[in-house]
Design a protein around this nucleic acid. Structure first.
Lengths: 209, 209
DNA sequence: GTCTATATATTGATAGAC
DNA sequence: GTCTATCAATATATAGAC
């Protein structure tokens, strides 16, 4: 049932691999790399451990595929910030997109957090290459806006860092935020956060008269 | 040499335990709980593994003592924010203290990050009790300042969260920051960061005319 | 108090039947 | 492709000599 038609076969393979990745994302993001076991991942994916290793030949390989797949998604919001837009509006929607990512992809955020916190062993190249260049490009744009008097003059790099930090906080430190604000539905929380950040950044960056 | 005088004995014990904690902090903060092994900790502390387990009877016990010891230090900066101070100055020095903690105790910051990211299994009570109360108290103070027109009106809780996020970012995401800004000495970096955060927050929180 | 040797459990990965 | 059984490597913890 598989000799000739390698087509449906591949489709099923792809689907299984996705199913495994989904499970692995959940496990890795909550327990870290070392804290995650193939047993837990296999259980979560509802397959046996050897079967899991039939689709991915090692734990490392699953993790690597997750991390790599993550990076492009993670950088997309910053990529979208355009030079020709209106500065305040561009920043506002960048913040909005980032907070939406924290809301919709908290597991990815934590996976990333974990990777960086432990020294970024798997993506150091990416950080020093692609990420660095992207940030330099966007920092230049922001600095130009400041020179034109469209924004108050501050350090563009630290501005970007602070946006990363504040938005990702709502994904990574979710338990803490919930402990303090109460366990109510968190959709609302992200709206509050977005509103606050908007006030803070717009207030802090509007050019002085 | 130890029957009668249990005094010097205890002092040596305490010193050894400190030595172990210091090593454990380094290991736990870089590899997470599961990623850390007694071997690594013992090696770092320059003692043998069984000897280590003579002073602490389990890995959990070391971790627990670290986490507990950390919390008070971690909350101190917020505790110092006083109702009677001048609002802008109080916030400014709170930010300053927090960024100094990120600079001087990055390992503690990462240990805390790791604990929270994984669901705060060991300090959930603390978050929902002591931390929550402290934050409520300080949020009330900040809100009162806003009511008096001393600060622009924003959500006091999210304000506190954002200060936590932005300052701890420089400890937890150090590799990323270094990758982007270059590997030069980082003392300077914290000054830049402090300056930026000051501009952002003061600009964003000064009451509108 | 400190060490060597070792018990015990967990875990990543493979072999081989079906 | 999936499963059972199992290997080999680690890692926590203990026993017992010194």
């Amino acid at each position: 049932m598989k000799k000739n038609s390698n087509y449906p076969n591949t489709r099923i393979q792809r689907q299984k691999r996705l199913q495994i990745l989904e499970a692995a994302l959940k496990i890795f993001s909550t327990h870290g790399y070392r804290g995650s076991t193939l047993d837990k991942i296999a259980l979560e994916a509802r397959i046996s451990k050897p079967n899991l290793l039939y689709y991915y030949k090692s734990k490392q390989e699953i993790h690597k595929e997750l991390i790599n797949g993550l990076m492009q998604k993670w950088l997309a919001p910053l990529r979208e910030m355009k030079k020709n837009g209106e500065p305040i509006a561009e920043l506002r929607s960048y913040i909005r997109r980032k907070i939406e990512m924290a809301r919709d992809f908290p597991r990815e955020s934590r996976l990333f957090n974990n990777e960086i916190t432990q020294g970024a062993p798997h993506i150091k190249d990416l950080l020093e290459g692609e990420l660095k260049e992207l940030v330099e490009e966007k920092a230049k744009i922001i600095s130009a806006w400041m020179e034109e008097g469209k924004l108050r003059k501050v350090d563009a790099y630290h501005l970007i860092f602070s946006i990363w930090a504040t938005t990702q906080h709502y994904a990574d430190f979710d338990v803490q935020v919930c402990a303090i604000l109460g366990e109510e539905k968190s959709k609302k929380r992200f709206d509050e956060a977005a509103k606050f950040l908007e006030q803070l950044y717009i207030g802090g960056l509007k050019p002085e008269k």
